[in-house]
Design a protein around this nucleic acid. Structure first.
Lengths: 344, 344
DNA sequence: CTGAAAGCGCTAACAA
DNA sequence: TTGTTAGCGCTTTCAG
């Protein structure tokens, strides 16, 4: 408020400043500011008044170093532009809201190398826990996770070996069940349309499960088409056109996510193709965003918010209890048949 | 790798451990690990080998306290579920990638109170800079920003008084120009459909600008409709239906964002309404996600990624130069007429 | 090129 | 209820 000579480098306020301004020892000031221990009403008021008047903001760096406790939870995800992850994050945020823990986000762009880097960076802040998407990590990243000495929760996927705790769904199973539902509905000449990302293991596992499901009925994929980058809705259109002109006999299109599926749906409607009569369609994720399309695309809910919540709950539970122990939460995605699979 | 008695609380490794394992002083180990100062090839190798073998992860808390430097940039945004912000974040991430600075995100849920809290929390980590959405803050938040002694960049909006630097667009102007374009195209019975959020000041400013633009031509809004929550596409449909049945004379619908606009577009197409002949439509944001709809919705690009980039660049520039000085970057959103405004 | 000493701002532990 | 003393693990500074 006063004495702000511009140009003069202002030193940030310290506990000592508040201590001097209030005539109370640093230690007691610290107690007041953290609501710790017994402090008399009078002292408390004097301290709070002084802190507020000066505009004191505590230095968590120093606090964390002294107390060896950091209220940060590292959250590592592949991407922010894929709709799915912001939803997971908001589940995490919501769950952590009242726990005193703060999520810190890092993004890997679907690169295992970058994941390793981001993880290293985050661990060096000594967070109280780590939530990380997927089960596939570099050897070094895995080692860091194992040695961090804090609760680790791998999320989204449960198909594979785990470091500590895990919260997710089985993408293999999701693909498998979708395949069964499609076969049961009488489709048999089926194509897959998906993303081509080297490190998108979950999409890969869904496809594997899907093929396994088809194999049960002696069916093989008729065609497949991959893309990367660009607007998903548009890509969905383009890929659908490509597949339908290349393999006109196809009667079902399974998309690796709802956005490209929606593009495909719009394309089919444009072309006057009978959906789900002539061609059935299904996506994956259960993106709420898409409610409101001319038809509801068949999909499977990936339980994104719930995954975020449960993962955060594990971290906050363990950080309270002070223990580290692998929990396993497998959520079950439910088929939402929508309007694009014909009734069995 | 060895000696991991489970159950035994493992103390995290310190510089001293690396020092002892390599037979080099802590100070020199520190130099090697930070690539600072001259260290002989031999010592360097010994240190790196030891650090790697032990799996040492530096403690940034201690480092930051000692050096009084923190490579964190606090980024405060209203929401993650609104498409727009993840894009800003990815602009920030991209720009910061090579600077050694790390973004840390906080979410306010469009609440000024919560913003104040999040800001306090983040400032207590003594970040190198703050990027914060919007110009409207509580008095206390404003005071914190002013006294933080670090570069502050307010983003998204330039219509109003600023704390330090600002990067954004004028939403008033965006609304104004949209109004002019619509009037010029010959529409005159115009309705507004938007979100009802107390602290969404940018949507409010767009509406104000829009009304001002209409007023230039002596036109007043025929109708308005607000919503909150739910799937935007669906809400767009519902609101559109409501307005059209209440005010059948309307010939243009201006939506406060592209998602509800897209819902409206789909509704009109469903009903066989001639767009843009009978009714014109426009949204706001320039959401790439929507490319691939049956028609391209008229919109205005909000320059989200660019805003993120520029804001991050200001922070990293100032943190290098060590100075704090208000920069002002006003980007100009461009009208994308798409297929839903009839040619003037 | 390398090392020793002195903190960074706070809190744990103990003393009064 | 309040204060004192020692660090937390690193880096700055200065001395070899």
């Amino acid at each position: 408020m006063s004495g702000n000579n511009p140009g003069e480098q202002r030193r940030a306020l310290t506990l000592r400043d508040v201590s001097e301004a209030s005539g109370v020892s640093e230690m007691t000031v610290s107690r007041v500011l953290r609501n710790r221990g017994d402090v008399s009403e009078g002292t408390r008021d004097r301290v709070l008044e002084a802190a507020k008047r000066l505009g004191y903001v505590p230095n968590k760096i120093a606090g964390a170093l002294a107390s060896q406790r950091v209220n940060l939870v590292a959250v590592i995800i592949p991407s922010l532009s894929n709709l799915v992850f912001p939803e997971v994050l908001s589940g995490i945020s919501a769950e952590l809201e009242e726990t005193g823990l703060q999520p810190v986000f890092g993004v890997t762009n679907y690169s295992a190398e970058r994941e390793e880097l981001v993880l290293y960076e985050m661990l060096s802040w000594r967070p109280s826990g780590v939530i990380i998407a997927g089960l596939e990590h570099t050897a070094a990243a895995r080692a860091m996770l194992e040695n961090a000495g804090i609760p680790i929760v791998e999320i989204m996927d449960v198909d594979g070996p785990v470091v500590d705790s895990v919260v997710g769904i089985s993408h293999k199973r999701a693909g498998l069940e979708m395949a069964r539902a499609i076969v049961k509905a009488g489709y048999s000449r089926i194509a897959f349309l998906g993303t081509k990302m080297p490190d998108d293991h979950r999409a890969r596992k869904r496809l594997e499960g899907f093929e396994a499901g088809l194999a049960e009925a002696g069916i093989e994929l008729v065609d497949r088409e991959f893309y990367s980058g660009g607007s998903a809705l548009m890509k969905g259109r383009e890929m659908t056109e490509a597949v339908l002109s290349r393999s006109p006999e196809v009667d079902f299109l399974y998309y690796s996510n709802d956005m490209i599926g929606a593009g495909g749906l719009l394309y089919c409607l444009d072309k006057g193709i009978d959906v789900p009569g002539r061609i059935g369609l299904a996506g994956f994720n259960g993106v709420e965003l898409l409610e409101g399309l001319p038809r509801r695309l068949a999909t499977m809910d990936a339980c994104r918010r719930e995954i975020g919540r449960r993962a955060a709950a594990i971290i906050s539970g363990h950080s309270e209890a002070g223990l580290i122990g692998g929990e396993r939460v497998e959520l079950t995605p439910v088929l939402q048949p929508g309007d694009t699979i014909r009734p069995a």
